[in-house]
């Protein structure tokens, strides 16, 4: 296998691209089934149990249902924007995976400004939502798009400052280098979740808001706005919107795993742990964060919109700015700045 990779230099990148793309799409199917089972378990229900053994074929049934139904475009909709919006969303959501390393060197584009690329892609993601909401030419989707956009922009600010603290400790904008910087003799206690614990908590909560997940799913608050900016979408176009949300959850969890949980690193640098391949550790960490996302959805009641804005601007922003100053000060006075 390795000999092949040396003879054909394009072979390994192709494997990585196809592997990551296939992995993300399969993971969304697993996520649909897994989340519904988790919520059902918390509610003491059965969850999907009809299609296939234990209902595991439910995602396939859902998929068929989405693509076989009739696609409808509302009469008053702005047709071009209406059709482009879900495409913009889904392409941006998947393109975030270009810089996320799933193992040492297993990354589509190992660029210098990986973190900035992620911020850029996630800030572009707002457009898919605003375009969908506006082009639907209907009140509820538009209100919901405004809410979603304001929410995503607000929480991006505090996510940005949280990332700055990580960058200060790692000394690089490259995600692979950030994981290498967490490789210390303390094993899992040297990963940034412990030294930057308050930042990890803020990152997790902001990630919930950034992906419009409960308790911050005000964009699709079904009791007030029907179901958010995708009300007018049906069939395949709705499938794309749905896929966008799921991929965003997966990529946010993976970013949390890379920035705070040491990416592909084993928890301890001793024998039984180092035998396990890095990809497996990465998957365990990313899915652990996904599990937290699902549990949060089912245990926590929804926020009010003004509370959400207050939390973002008046609580998280000052705390994260204070931590940037604190971390920088500690690193400089102790002489721990990375070279």
């Amino acid at each position: 296998m390795n000999a092949w990779f040396e003879t054909y230099p394009w072979l390994f990148p192709t494997f990585v691209i196809v592997g990551i793309l296939a992995g993300v799409l399969i993971s969304t199917a697993v996520l649909i089934y897994g989340e519904r089972k988790i919520w059902a378990a918390v509610h003491m229900r059965r969850g999907p149990n009809v299609v296939g053994p234990w209902g595991v074929l439910q995602p396939i049934a859902d998929f068929l249902k989405f693509i076989l139904k009739e696609s409808m475009v509302p009469d008053g909709a702005n047709k071009g924007v209406f059709l482009i919006a879900p495409l913009v969303s889904v392409i941006l959501a998947i393109s975030a995976w270009a810089v996320i390393p799933v193992n040492d060197g297993w990354v589509v584009a190992n660029i210098n400004v990986g973190i900035l690329y992620l911020l850029a892609v996630s800030s572009l993601g707002v457009y898919g939502i605003i375009m969908a909401g506006w082009a639907s030419n209907s009140k509820d989707p538009f209100l919901s798009a405004l809410r979603a956009a304001a929410q995503m922009i607000s929480y991006e600010v505090s996510i940005g400052f949280v990332i700055v603290t990580v960058l200060l400790c790692a000394g690089s904008l490259n995600l692979t280098d950030i994981v290498h910087a967490q490789d210390s003799k303390w094993g899992m206690f040297g990963w940034y979740w412990l030294p930057l614990l308050p930042m990890f908590v803020i990152f997790f909560i902001s990630a919930l808001a950034e992906t419009n997940r409960p308790p911050f799913d005000l964009a699709e608050a079904e009791s007030e706005l029907v179901a958010g900016y995708m009300v007018e979408y049906s069939s395949s176009l709705f499938l794309l919107q749905f896929l966008t949300e799921l991929v965003a959850i997966l990529s946010m969890s993976s970013i949390a795993a890379v920035l705070f949980l040491g990416g592909w690193l084993p928890p301890f640098n001793v024998a039984p742990f180092t035998w396990v391949p890095g990809l497996v550790w990465f998957l365990i960490k990313a899915w652990a964060v996904v599990l937290l996302f699902s549990l949060t959805k089912v245990i926590v009641p929804r926020y009010r919109y003004d509370q959400l804005m207050r939390l973002g601007w008046k609580v998280f922003l000052p705390i994260s700015i204070f931590y940037v100053v604190l971390v920088a000060g500690v690193l400089v006075t102790m002489g721990w700045l990375p070279k």
């Binding site: 900035l116 800030s123 405004l146």
Partner: peptide, 22 residues
């Protein structure tokens, strides 16, 4: 100039243009 490119997207596209659009 990858830093400038990313900043252009984050600042202009991600923040300023959203305000225009609103």
């Amino acid at each position: 100039a990858e830093f400038l490119a990313m900043m252009l997207v984050v600042v202009y596209v991600g923040a300023v243009a959203v305000l225009f659009l609103f």
